[in-house]
Write a protein that binds this DNA or RNA. Structure first.
Lengths: 108, 108
DNA sequence: CGTATTGCTACGATAATTGTAGCAACGGAG
DNA sequence: CTCCGTTGCTACAATTATCGTAGCAATACG
């Protein structure tokens, strides 16, 4: 019972409120979503290079996430191959950069 | 079953590199993790209030996430009941606050 | 005692993810 | 053209994760 997106409305699993933050948290909360954005932060990667960067995750999920992230407008498939961040995606990725330093301090 | 943390080492699914950012991305990439942190951003909530805030998500997963987030030191169970963010958790949550405005602009 | 909370768990059903293998399309040698 | 190697992408069974419902023990109040 995959939740269908009602015409024009961005309806993501687990977020029936319509609040965009919920849709975003849900999208980013799926496995490998955050990781994909992270791995693409510097430069575009081919699907296989991305898979290698993502600890050889299953191509099934990666393709699913890439499709979702493309639909969301965060990732694009460049002409000539290779996945890269869109301007919007780069902007989103910037939001997560402080996470890097935080993680270093966390670690404990 | 749930991957056990080898003595002293923080080993999280999908992150065998040992880089803390990977462990963090993996932890936050599990379902409801981000949402839980988000819902606790203002004030502590009881387990049931949190469940209500999280769209009546299954208590099984919520308990699992809460345990993980507690082990990570982001969430704590206050004396007298109620889950709240730790100082570290509040700090992590601050990192995600820009996400709110980003989500508003996203939406499209 | 009854009633209502709290945090938390059991367990079958369902959905998501994994792992392996492979496809069609394109391009560059040879 | 043929042979390679790459690209993005898919099939499909097996394994996990999550859902949904019900309920437990503990605590508190009357």
């Amino acid at each position: 019972m995959a939740k269908q997106a009602a015409s024009g409305t961005r309806t993501v699993r687990g977020s029936r409120t319509g609040r965009p933050i919920m849709a975003l948290l849900d999208l980013l909360g799926r496995r490998w979503s955050l990781r994909i954005l992270w791995e693409l932060r510097d430069a575009p990667l081919t699907s296989r290079a991305l898979r290698a960067a993502c600890d050889e995750a299953s191509p099934t999920v990666l393709q699913a996430r890439l499709t979702e992230l493309r639909d969301a407008g965060f990732v694009e498939l460049g002409d000539g191959g290779g996945y890269g961040l869109t301007a919007l995606g780069r902007e989103l990725c910037e939001t997560f950069m402080p996470l890097h330093r935080f993680a270093e301090r966390w670690q404990k």
